[in-house]
Design a protein around this nucleic acid. Structure first.
Lengths: 244, 244
DNA sequence: TTACTGCCGATTTTCGAAATAATCAAAACC
DNA sequence: GGTTTTGATTATTTCGAAAATCGGCAGTAA
């Protein structure tokens, strides 16, 4: 049919959703902040209903929490949540890796190498501080997804993706302090090698460590930003992202 | 403070959400059905915005799917989805059981026994077809939750609960055909015993089998109702629920 | 002083109309 | 005859005002 392209076919709510998600992950909207409709309406230039739509979806993603009839809140960060999130991610990611290695075909292997190559090339182009770039964050996310894309479980992949994005916010919080993630490059290559070699146990262990080390890094360098009880601390506006 | 009770403190959106969820699970709204706003507005007696709010949340729960700017759809059922859902549930539930047994205290054990007792008493009161009751479904859900409540992972519990509700719809589809779930009663007791005895491996295996057998039952008796490609088949309106 | 009750301003939630986008069918074109 | 274009119809998305709700404060009583 005539339906050739529709890249611009985006609803306003979808646009606001994306922008808010980005602002929350980058901590431009600080954890624990109360989200007042009037303020947001001016900031994003949309109406109440459209905001509500976006807020509802962000609640589903765990980036915003709803407080009964008392409005919305940027989801607080905490040491407890980070650790819990990490444990769940490890569980899910290990299973994804296992299934993908069982079920993946040649096409899957090729896609992994392509995703790695794209990420690797962009790193070279951007130089030392590649991890500060939003574009790199996208390719990094795509690389990790490609590793498990063949797992054959839409439900597991959906859960994995939501957890990945929640974790992204924590990574971003630490990357602005200690930009020394060089070891991660090597890890990505090792993981890819072991996955394509269908070495399930080693691949799982590598991914496990990859995730947990990042968490330890965040705790070491950014945990002073976490709320102890619940309310958020003041954050500097920034948009760097940590590697994983 | 004076805040003694607020059981009636429910927003209209929350009310509509609950009613729609119930209607979807009971297949009063058939899988694959297109959800037209005008129709729903009359059915639930609310406005567009309120509907949109509820729909958004149901999308998050996986009971409704959004089709870009072409509206909403009751999430279709399929053999593939049921099997996938079952596998993910087993993964999550096994981990929940393991953690709960590691971390649970006396209070946790007591809560399990209390939940079982309440479910058991209601079964006696309702007689042979207890599983047709919504009230029993609630207690059944609470019992399974109590088993893993002490796992200490809010993220895992949240995922578990969403998967449980999605599976609920499938259970309901089969229970209207073959009301012979008597073996499940015994299973519940066995699971409780092994969990409280802190016998992790056996408890995990029992829960695993508990879930998978229910799925097999659904496939055996209700898979003819599943859409092959995606669109839903006609369903009879009903509100029975299968045991698990 | 302490606890309860009733009001007021601020904020959220709901509403239905208006704008925008998709669908379908008939007409025009190749 | 088959394909594309056009236009009317239907459905969804967005808007801002109106209604409902919350939290605090003043006033009263114990």
């Amino acid at each position: 049919m005539g339906n050739t392209l529709k890249p611009a076919g985006e609803t306003r709510a979808g646009d606001v959703l994306a922008r808010m998600r980005s602002d929350i992950i980058s901590c431009a909207l600080k954890p624990g902040t109360k989200l007042r409709f009037e303020t947001l309406r001016e900031l994003y230039e949309v109406s109440f209903s459209t905001l509500r739509e976006a807020l509802s979806r962000l609640v589903a993603e765990g980036l915003v929490v709803a407080e009964g009839q008392r409005g919305f809140l940027v989801a607080p960060v905490s040491l407890f949540d980070l650790n819990d999130l990490t444990d769940v991610r490890v569980l899910v990611e290990r299973q994804c890796i296992k299934l993908a290695i069982e079920r993946g075909d040649d096409r899957w292997e090729a896609d992994i190498m392509a995703a790695f190559h794209r990420m690797d090339r962009l790193q070279s182009r951007l130089g030392a501080s590649y991890y500060l770039s939003d574009e790199w964050a996208t390719l990094h996310s795509a690389f990790h997804l490609s590793l498990v894309a063949a797992c054959g479980s839409p439900n597991l992949l959906e859960i994995r993706q939501k957890l990945f994005e929640r974790a992204h916010r924590y990574r971003r919080m630490s990357s602005q302090f200690r930009p020394q993630w060089r070891a991660k490059d090597v890890e990505h290559k090792m993981i890819m090698d072991r996955v394509i070699a269908r070495d399930t146990a080693t691949a799982q262990d590598l991914v496990d460590r990859h995730i947990r080390e990042t968490t330890e890094n965040v705790i070491a360098h950014a945990s002073h930003l976490f709320a102890q009880g619940g309310a958020g601390d003041p954050f500097k506006r920034s948009d760097p992202v940590a590697a994983e």
